[in-house]
């Protein structure tokens, strides 16, 4: 399998009045084609920032300060002002025009809140037409309509409803429309930023299932950002656990749930409520994540870790591959290299 996306030493900084916070700190990732990568972690750990950096959409005052994001293109992308040649493209080197040609066409992004992600003033049909027109100015109205109806039909929304306005849809349907819009141009990479957070569990399950089907259908590669480990257990092939802007562990899903390596991952899995053991009290991780403006030396997790050693307080652990080909950033595994 070839890699679709390679991220090297990506660092994102937020310049605030108090100082500079590293939202994403030297993250390196390789994403194989047709795989689903789950990004998990608690709030503020940088998972959304990482997802947005791939689109070069880090919100102000954030800035990508370092790193390389290589995306594999299978075909040349032709847009009115030029051509992006196929092969690996460093997204960091692209200008605005080129980025615009890439967004939607190669990478799609689905936002967390479907209620406000659609323009209330235009119909769903217009949404589809706008997107198709933005990337293919010559497309005929009927053709765009046909394709849009086909996509909606595939997502379980009756095609007649295409002339409706967003407020006439329920939350789950709007998220389906958003997914449909994201997939309208057959992108290769889909980044879903907590796509089911604001939906109830039944709709959540439906949508996750549909996304899995669409993934097969369109040969999608997916990055699923969530704080819900249950969702990842169902859908992801690999899971990256993030903490304070760094990747703590990157393992295949099954291995991660069966045998979490990093103490943080262990603690996270501990704290997932278990229906089969009603007597068990909910556990949590004592303490709070460190202040990113004023980072502590050594491993960011050391004040909350059960296994803190002296080296943890002085040296930052790098990602190490263990003998099962799993990546972990912890001094506990330093010797097994």
């Amino acid at each position: 399998m070839t890699d679709l996306l390679r991220i090297e030493d990506l660092a994102v900084e937020y310049k605030t009045r108090r100082g500079t916070a590293r939202g994403v700190d030297n993250v390196s990732l390789n994403l194989e084609e047709n795989k689903t990568l789950g990004l998990a972690g608690e709030s503020g750990c940088g998972k959304s920032t990482l997802g947005r950096s791939i689109m070069r959409l880090v919100p102000y005052p954030g800035k990508i300060v370092n790193g390389k994001i290589d995306l594999l293109l299978h075909e040349d992308i032709v847009f009115p002002k030029g051509v992006i040649e196929k092969g690996f493209v460093n997204i960091m080197d692209l200008n605005e025009e080129e980025l615009r040609a890439l967004r939607g066409k190669e990478i799609a992004y689905i936002f967390q809140d479907p209620m406000t992600s659609l323009n209330p003033m235009i119909t769903v049909e217009t949404h589809f037409q706008e997107i198709m027109k933005a990337h293919d100015p010559d497309i005929k109205k009927e053709e765009a309509l046909d394709r849009a109806q086909e996509i909606l039909d595939g997502l379980g929304i009756s095609p007649e409803r295409i002339t409706d306005y967003p407020h006439q849809f329920s939350g789950g349907m709007r998220q389906r429309v958003m997914i449909g819009l994201g997939l309208a141009l057959r992108p290769k990479l889909l980044i879903a930023d907590e796509p089911t957070t604001s939906l109830d569990v039944i709709v959540e399950a439906q949508i996750l299932e549909e996304m899995a089907e669409l993934k097969e259908l369109f040969n999608l590669t997916m990055i699923l950002i969530t704080h819900n480990l249950g969702v990842l257990a169902q859908t992801a092939d690999d899971i990256a656990i993030m903490y304070s802007g760094r990747i703590m562990e990157l393992s295949p899903t099954e291995a991660l749930f069966e045998d979490p390596l990093h103490p943080y991952t262990q603690a996270l899995l501990e704290s997932v409520p278990d229906v089969s053991k009603p007597d068990k009290k909910l556990s949590w991780i004592p303490g709070a994540p460190p202040d990113l403006v004023d980072p502590i030396p050594g491993c960011m997790y050391n004040p909350r870790c059960k296994h803190t050693m002296d080296i943890c307080k002085t040296t930052q652990p790098g990602l190490i591959m263990n003998d099962e080909e799993r990546l972990v950033a912890c001094h506990l595994f330093g010797g097994e290299k």
């Binding site: 890439l102 939607g104 936002f111 992600s117 323009n119 933005a134």
Partner: peptide, 15 residues
């Protein structure tokens, strides 16, 4: 978010 969603889908500034 819908403006951001439009940017993400590659809409032109004009649109």
């Amino acid at each position: 978010p819908y403006v951001e969603a439009a940017i993400v889908m590659g809409a032109r500034d004009r649109d």
